[in-house]
């Protein structure tokens, strides 16, 4: 699409209205059975993540075990949805997770800044896919977006999508750098039109990350895209969601914005590392009626 066509996509978002809607979601009271179901759903939607310079094969393997066995002391727990690692650790994760159903996601395209050439980004993507990644989490070029070069962003996403082959593409907007909800909405629309399978808020390296107003704005973009094309796109808030209550309010937002079809890890994910243990602690509390100490939950 041309830059002018992409400029014409801009739609206004009223930030005050979005914040009011979010406040309303936060008044939802999730208790008893619904809470247990919601917590299990949240656990099953987590992309357990490690994205550090000091990551090693050993660290990744241990995290993969946690992904498959979140807390064996509790029966009937689902696994998490995926583990999310740098491309160099994909092979290790694929091997560790074999047969478990837990997906492997790799961040690519010069994550987290995205400041590199198209050639390098495509190569980065290819390395991840060739190593067996089921999903690729790319970052958009925020500098190009903010300078108004929307067609650059569109073309780049389309090119990476092609390089992904069968792997599902998550497009990270890094909303903390886009600054306005109007921009978040515009970037969401560009990403979906360019072929994103998921849109994702943040790298986790920039704050603010996945705030509820940002996530709602993106969910509403997904809804409009679905209305207009019939195509479902997934959503992944990432960064800043470390407590169960916030995760449940995110799920409330999904349920009341997009409906039942999105309430599955095929269409909704949490990018988080510390959320899993908080969810497990809440589930244990629901089962046993009291809170357990933090050291009863493994840190991987």
């Amino acid at each position: 699409m041309t830059n002018n066509q992409l400029i014409a996509l801009k739609r206004p978002i009223d930030q005050v209205g979005v914040e009011e809607r979010v406040a309303r979601f936060q008044t939802r009271s999730i208790k008893t059975e619904a809470k247990i179901q919601g917590l299990k759903m949240a656990l099953n939607m987590i992309d357990l993540t490690t994205l550090e310079g000091k990551d090693t094969a050993g660290k990744v393997r241990q995290m993969c075990y946690k992904a498959m066995h979140p807390h064996d002391a509790l029966p009937d727990l689902p696994t998490v949805a995926a583990v999310c690692v740098y491309p160099t650790h994909v092979a290790t994760a694929v091997d560790a997770l074999k047969g478990s159903g837990v997906k492997v996601a790799a961040v690519a395209t010069a994550f987290p800044s995205g400041n590199s050439s198209r050639k390098i980004k495509l190569a980065d993507t290819k390395i991840a896919v060739d190593a067996g990644a089921d999903e690729v989490d790319m970052v958009i070029s925020r500098g190009e977006f903010l300078s108004g070069n929307y067609s650059f962003v569109f073309d780049e996403i389309a090119a990476i999508k092609e390089a992904c082959g069968k792997a599902r593409l998550k497009v990270i907007l890094e909303t903390g750098e886009l600054s306005t909800l109007d921009n978040v909405r515009h970037a969401s629309d560009i990403a979906m039109l360019a072929g994103a399978d998921f849109i994702k808020t943040s790298t986790g390296k920039i704050s603010p990350a996945a705030t509820m107003p940002v996530t709602l704005t993106m969910l509403e973009a997904i809804r409009d895209f679905y209305y207009e094309t019939g195509k479902m796109v997934g959503m992944k808030p990432a960064g800043g969601i470390s407590k169960s209550k916030l995760a449940l309010h995110n799920l409330v937002m999904v349920k009341e914005t997009l409906g039942d079809a999105w309430l599955s890890n095929e269409w909704f994910r949490f990018g988080a590392s510390s959320l899993a243990n908080d969810v497990l602690m809440q589930l244990a509390k629901q089962a046993e009626g009291r809170y357990q100490g933090l050291d009863y939950f493994s840190k991987d």
């Binding site: 939802r28 009271s29 999730i30 208790k31 008893t32 059975e33 619904a34 809470k35 179901q37 919601g38 759903m41 809804r223 679905y226 209305y227 019939g230 799920l251 349920k255 009341e256 997009l258 409906g259 039942d260 079809a261 309430l263």
Partner: peptide
């Protein structure tokens, strides 16, 4: 296209 606001996750009382 129609969204399904069904009973997959009903809130408890």
């Amino acid at each position: 296209t129609k969204l399904d606001f069904g009973s997959k996750w009903d809130y408890s009382a």
